[in-house]
C-alpha cells in the first residue's frame, strides 16, 4: 500500500476573547502512512465478528470486506464511529477507547483491503442470457456505472464502494435500506436509487453480482484460510 490517507476534519472552531464574535471556519488535514502489520493486530477484534478472512456470509448479514477499497472502508468506519451510519452492534468496537486513534483505523483498513476475496461470493438469481440479466445490465449501465465503474470496480479516490464480488444479498439489503431511508448514504447515490423501484435495484445488483472479479484479487479456493491466524 503506497497510498497515504488524508483525513479532513472541518468544522467551526469557536475562539474566545477578542475574536469571540468572529469564529473562523478551520480545516485540519492529517496524513498517515498505513502500517498493515499493525493493521493485522487491530484486525484481531474485527475478526471476532467478521471472521479472519473478512469474507462476509452468504445470507448477507455480513459484507465481504476483503478487497474493498481502503478509502471506502475508512469512510464507512468513520461513519459508523460517529453514528452517521446506524450499526449499533459494531459502533462500540470502533470508538477511540476500543480501537485507538486514526493511525489504527488507517492501518486496519489497509490490512483488510489487501486480503484476498472470497471466490464463492453469492450472485443474484438471474444468470447471463436471461432477460432479467439484460435488463439489469441496462439499468446498471445507465444509472450506476458512472460512479461504481463499468465492472463494478468502484472508485478508490472517490471512496465509491466496489460492488463486484460483494454478496448479492448484502448489496440488495443495503440498496433497499438506502432507498427506504433506513441507511444514510452519499446524497447523489441516494438520489439515484430513489428514482428506481426495488425490483429495478435488484436487477442492477444482480447484474453486477454476475461480473467476474480479477483472479489476482481472489483467494485460490473457498477453503483458503487466513494464515495470519495460524
Amino acid at each position: 500500500m503506497k497510498g497515504r490517507f488524508f483525513l479532513l476534519l472541518s468544522g467551526l472552531l469557536l475562539l474566545s476573547g477578542a475574536w469571540a464574535d468572529a469564529p473562523a471556519k478551520m480545516k485540519i488535514v492529517l496524513e498517515f502512512q498505513p502500517d498493515p502489520l499493525n493493521g493485522r493486530k487491530v484486525f484481531d477484534v474485527c475478526a471476532r465478528c467478521h471472521m479472519p478472512e473478512a469474507w462476509g456470509n452468504e445470507d448477507g448479514t455480513y459484507p465481504q470486506l476483503a478487497g474493498q477499497h481502503a478509502t471506502v472502508l475508512l469512510r464507512q468506519l468513520m461513519e459508523i464511529r460517529t453514528g452517521q451510519r446506524a450499526n449499533a452492534l459494531m459502533r462500540p468496537f470502533v470508538q477511540e477507547r476500543t480501537l485507538g486513534g486514526y493511525q489504527n483505523l488507517v492501518d486496519v483498513v489497509a490490512y483488510i483491503s489487501r486480503l484476498p476475496m472470497d471466490p464463492a461470493y453469492i450472485r443474484g438469481p438471474w444468470s447471463e442470457g436471461t432477460p432479467e440479466y439484460d435488463k439489469g445490465r441496462q439499468i446498471y449501465t445507465a444509472h450506476c456505472a458512472a460512479c461504481h465503474g463499468p465492472e463494478g470496480e468502484g472508485n478508490a479516490q472517490g471512496a465509491v464502494p466496489r460492488l463486484q464480488g460483494q454478496h448479492y444479498p448484502y448489496t440488495r439489503r443495503q440498496a433497499i435500506a438506502i432507498k427506504r431511508g433506513q441507511r444514510r448514504a452519499d446524497l447523489a447515490m441516494q438520489a439515484v436509487v430513489s428514482q428506481l423501484d426495488e425490483h429495478e435495484l435488484e436487477l442492477a445488483l444482480n447484474y453486477v453480482s454476475q461480473l467476474e472479479v480479477p483472479k489476482t484479487d481472489l483467494a485460490p479456493t473457498p477453503n483458503w484460510r487466513n494464515p495470519d491466524f495460524k
Binding site: D44, V45, A47, R48, M51, P52, A88, L89, M90, R91, P92, F93, Q95, R97, T98
Partner: peptide
C-alpha cells in the same frame, strides 16, 4: 472462530459487545 488465548483486547471487546446489544 474462537479466540482461546485470553487478553485485554478480549476483555474490552466483551464490554463493547454487550454495549452494542444494549444499544440495539
Amino acid at each position: 472462530h474462537a479466540v482461546e488465548q485470553w487478553d485485554e483486547v478480549g476483555g474490552r471487546a466483551s464490554v463493547a459487545w454487550a454495549e452494542g446489544l444494549f444499544q440495539d
